[in-house]
Amino acid sequence: MTHLVVDAPGALTLVEDLGRPGFAHLGVAGSGALDRGALALANRLVGNPDGAAGLEILIGGFRATFSGDAWFAVAGAWGRARLGGRPVAPYTAARARAGDVLELDPAERGIRYLLAVRGGIDEPPVLGSRSRDTLAGLGPEPVVAGRVLELGPEPATSVPLIDQEAAFPPPADHLTLGLLPGPRADWFTDAARARLFDDAWRCSASTDRIGARLEGPTLDRAVPGELPSEATVPGSIQVSTSGQPTILLADRPVTGGYPVIAIVAPASLDAVAQLRPGQEVRFRHA
């Protein structure tokens, strides 16, 4: 069976599929690729089912060798990719030959590449998913140099012809995200609720798969005191005691004790995965 040998994982390379929904009541978040649309796109480009496991590669500086012939596609972050030293177009299916080396340079747009290989990454599933949950420590271990990743059997569907213009790279400048009302919006002052939409925010460098921290004005509370922990959904914007918002993502704690002022609309959530440190974020009503 063909496999992929990871020679250099870059900043952080994780095996991810579309996650493990339905275990929140046991304390396990959905996890899965942060940019779900990008994983689904990369999978479709090589004829995989949307939920086949691929690699989520943070920033780049990634290098891997194919042991045999295989179709692959890179989506999500936009940057220079080379196969055997020759450029590979992003968001298109390409065919690797045995011994070919795939290299991903640091991303120029966005920050998380999604690499799909025809057949999918065949790591043992945990609770029905091959996703690494970085908070709960579930699923395949983070990929280290030298790791050999088995590929699954080829799917029945052929590699399709898809117009590569169908997808767009992540924006280079600011990003505008749609928001839905949050369960605890009334815990904040009118001024804080207005500032959320009126002011510009910046993605903090300490953003990870658990949450995207935002830097900006302080969001003041109208209701002081502590909130008993309650369940959150992906995209919930919780506000810390010091007034700083964090967009909770796929590997978040299932329950949290900070009030949620708003929720990033599902249609905007993939874009959060591609936020770069320092990038400007604005919010609008979804």
Partner: peptide, 11 residues
């Protein structure tokens, strides 16, 4: 799809 109970809420 699911119930997620907590101290004072049920999702």
């Amino acid at each position: 799809v699911e119930f997620v109970p907590a101290a004072r809420t049920l999702l």
